[in-house]
Amino acid sequence: MTIEGTTGSDPSNHEEAHFGRMLSAEAGAGRRVAYGSLPDQYFEWFGDPHTAGTVVILIHGGYFRERTTLAHVRPMAHALVSRGERVAVALLEYRRAGGAGGHPRTLEDVENAIAHAAESVGDVRWVVAGHSAGGSLALSWATRQQECGPEVRVRPLAPVTDLVAEARDGLGDGAVVDYMGASPAEDLSRYLEEDPRSRAALIPARLDVLLIHGTRDATVDVAFSRGFPAARLEVEGADHFDLVDPQSPLFDAVVEALLG
C-alpha cells in the first residue's frame, strides 16, 4: 500500500535540517513515571490512561545513541492525544549506547517499561509504535511475546529491521555495532537474540504488524521494510522524520495507521 504526498528534491539534503527543527521545537513533558531505579528508566504519560480507549506505546529513535532523548518526539505524543478519541500515549525513555545501555539492556528496558504501563491500565486497545531504532525495538519486543494474550497493533515507523545488514554496511557511522557491542562476525549469537529480521517468524499472530516507511527516507532506506515479512504502508515522498513530525503534511497518514 502506498500513500502519496509531495516529493521535492532529494531528501538526503533535508533530513539533517528537518531533525534540527524537531530538536528545537518545544513541547511540554508528560507525567513522568519511573519503571526502574536508573535515570533513563522512565516514561511520560500524555493524556489520561485511566479514561483512554486506546493506549499508544511510543519508542523514540536516534540510532540507539545516548545523545538522542525522547524530547524530540513529545510533539508527536501531544498530537496523537489531540487528534485521536480517548487516546493516551506512553512515551518511553530507555538506557542507550554510549551511556548505561546497549544490548541487551536497552531492549530489557523497553520490555519492562511496556509491562509497567500495561499494569496500570485497564482493558484498552494497545498500539506499540517506534521510530527508526525505536521501530527495531518495537519489532524485537514483538518477537518475544507469547502466543496467548491481547491483540496489539505493532506500528514500526521507518524501522531498522535488519541489525545484521546495518552492522555489515556500517550505516549510521557504525551505530549498530556500537549498540550491539560486537560485529556479527565477532558474535552472531547476540544478533540472533534481538535482530528483528532473524526473529520475524516468532511474532505471534495476535500482533497486527504494519511497517510504515517513507519512500524518500535517506537515513533508513525503505528497502529495509520491503525486505521484512509483514504488511507495509509506504508514504510517498516522506523522509525519515515526516513520520514523527506533526508539522509534516504527511503525518496524517501515520495518525490513521496508528489510530484508525
Rank of each mutant, 00 (worst) to 15 (best):
M1K: 11
T2E: 15
E4V: 11
G5Q: 10
T6P: 15
P11M: 14
S12L: 15
E15H: 11
H18S: 12
G20M: 14
M22D: 03
S24Q: 15
E26N: 11
V33P: 00
V33M: 05
V33T: 12
V33D: 01
V33R: 06
S37C: 03
L38E: 15
D40A: 12
E44T: 03
E44I: 10
W45S: 04
D48S: 13
T51G: 13
V56Y: 06
V56R: 00
L58E: 00
I59K: 02
I59M: 04
H60A: 06
G61V: 04
G62V: 01
R65Y: 09
T68Q: 12
P75E: 00
L80M: 05
V81F: 02
S82C: 15
R83N: 11
R83C: 12
E85D: 13
R86N: 06
A88Y: 04
L91H: 00
R95D: 02
R95V: 02
R96H: 02
A97R: 09
G99H: 03
A100I: 09
A100Q: 14
G101C: 01
R105Y: 14
R105E: 05
T106E: 04
L107S: 02
E108D: 10
D109V: 09
D109Y: 04
V110D: 00
A117M: 02
G122E: 09
V124Q: 09
V127D: 05
A129P: 07
G130D: 01
S136I: 07
L137C: 03
A138S: 09
W141M: 03
A142E: 04
Q145D: 08
R153F: 04
A158L: 13
V160K: 01
V160D: 01
V160W: 12
L163S: 05
R168N: 10
V176A: 08
D178M: 06
D178I: 01
M180D: 02
G181C: 02
S183Y: 10
E186D: 11
E186W: 07
L188P: 03
S189F: 11
S189P: 04
R190L: 15
E193R: 03
E193P: 03
E194A: 15
R206Y: 06
D208F: 01
V209M: 04
H213G: 06
T215G: 05
V220S: 02
V220D: 08
V222F: 07
V222W: 03
A223Y: 09
A223H: 05
S225C: 03
R226G: 03
R226S: 12
R226D: 12
F228I: 12
A230Y: 08
A230G: 10
A231Y: 12
E236T: 15
D239R: 01
D242R: 08
Q247S: 15
S248K: 07
F251H: 00
D252R: 09
A253C: 07
E256T: 09
L258F: 06
L259F: 08
L259M: 08
